[in-house]
Amino acid sequence: MNLKYIVAFGLVITSLLINVSMPSKVIDKINMITVSGYDKAEQNRIKETVVAPTYLEQGTVEDHVYTTSADTVYGNRVKLNSKASEQLLNGKLRVAFYSEELAKQGLKTPIEFLTRDTSIDSNLFLAITKVPAVELINTVKTKKGKGVYFEDLFEHNIIHGNLPDVSLKTFEDSLKGETSDPFLPMFGIEGETAKLESLAFFKDDRLVDTLPITQADVFKMLYENVGDGTYQYKSDDYNISVENMESTRKITAEKKNGSPEMTLDVRMTGVVREYTGEQVMDQKSKIETDIAQDFTEKANRIIKSFQELNIDPLKLEDFFKSKHRSYNQDQFKEDYSDMTIKVKADMRLTGTGTRR
């Protein structure tokens, strides 16, 4: 019996000695990057800026910002680590920014760095910056850390604003799938904060057009179902603000005379929060018709601009492919610019708010 205890004790001591001698990454000797930004640099190089926070006592955060330039993103990471006192790792990366100038050249190569790193979450947020990415990152001042701040900014605008659901995964899927084109949010600067300014649309991996975020409510409802949106309408007779907007999108596709014809049916409900006309309930039917017509006109303009640019961020080709065995990619792309794409909208007001 005593011999068994002696053997067990010996095994424990041996295990401890082995673990002590094995190389390992000591937590105190690494620093997790939360934000990265990429800009075009001179001589066709790429500039990378990263944020690595240190968590101090009483919940305070100190952000360390490092910037280098190199021929490749991988080359930048070697240089960045030479500046940091701890090893910089990507495991907590929350947001990656790319400058507008870089996005116009194409983002396939810079983004491959992220997709090849298995420690990076595929739900990582991506965005374009109207100013250099390094300027945006350095300008923002926040006590909760830049990584948390930017992540919260994305989530708030996705849940309650005009930003559709976007991530590294959705961007990569659009590039690989070849049946849709990606889009990303574009941020600028206002004071010491970041401001969501527009949606940036891509043809393959190159930025080709933008849509002001104030008009992106229509695109979002064409792109996906919305659970908590807003809508503003202005006419000669009245102004109205509708909140708690919920919408569902249904796409139908058929062939007429050998060519695809698509219809997007958007059904919306919402609550009046502000109204400048007469009693809203007396004008309810007219207001619903006005908003539905306004939505349809804006949607048609947006879709027409997509057709002129020959881009498909609404994933219409992807939908047609899933529904029609006769789908031919070359034929669909040839037909797309002149394709009949209809929008039907229905609006129902479910409550009234203030009147002034």
Rank of each mutant, 00 (worst) to 15 (best):
G191E: 10
K220C: 11
V266K: 04
P260L: 08
L222G: 02
K255Q: 11
P185N: 04
K298E: 14
I291G: 06
M245L: 15
A292F: 09
P260I: 09
T350S: 05
A84D: 08
I13L: 13
F183M: 11
S326K: 12
G188S: 15
V20F: 10
F113Q: 09
R206S: 12
T340V: 15
S122D: 08
A345I: 04
K220L: 11
E101W: 10
D228I: 01
H156F: 13
A200R: 12
T214W: 00
V226H: 03
M347C: 09
E334V: 00
E155V: 15
S235I: 05
S119V: 01
T34Q: 06
T340N: 15
V148C: 00
T276V: 14
R94T: 09
D39P: 03
D330T: 11
G188D: 11
Y238T: 04
E197M: 07
F295Y: 15
G91H: 10
T193Y: 00
G147L: 04
G37Q: 12
D173N: 14
L199R: 13
T296Q: 14
M262R: 00
V343S: 03
K40E: 12
V12K: 08
L3D: 12
T109A: 09
E224Y: 03
E178N: 05
I287Q: 06
H324G: 03
E100L: 10
D117Y: 02
F306H: 13
L316C: 05
M262N: 02
Q283A: 13
K29L: 09
D71A: 09
T230K: 15
M347Y: 04
Y66P: 00
P132K: 01
T54E: 14
P313T: 06
G147V: 07
F9G: 15
A133W: 04
E308N: 08
D294R: 05
T269M: 03
E317H: 05
T49N: 14
I341P: 02
T289E: 14
V208I: 14
Y74Q: 09
P182L: 05
A127D: 01
I159A: 13
T248Q: 11
A84H: 05
S285H: 10
G227E: 10
N81E: 09
D335T: 02
A70K: 06
F9S: 15
S241H: 04
Y74K: 07
E224D: 07
D318I: 00
N90C: 08
F183Q: 08
D338H: 12
N44P: 00
D173Q: 14
T214M: 07
N310K: 15
M347L: 11
G351V: 00
D282N: 14
G37I: 14
P164V: 07
L93P: 02
A103H: 09
I311M: 08
A133H: 10
P260M: 08
K47N: 08
V26Y: 09
L211G: 01
K234N: 05
N300D: 12
N244F: 05
S24I: 08
L17W: 05
S247C: 06
A84Q: 06
D330M: 06
M347H: 04
R267Q: 15
I158N: 12
T115E: 11
L349V: 03
L93M: 10
F295I: 06
L114H: 00
T252P: 02
D338S: 14
D39V: 01
Y5L: 14
F154R: 05
M221K: 10
S174Y: 07
G188H: 05
S285P: 00
V131S: 05
L196E: 01
V343C: 05
F9W: 11
E243V: 01
R77N: 11
Y98K: 12
D294F: 04
L80W: 02
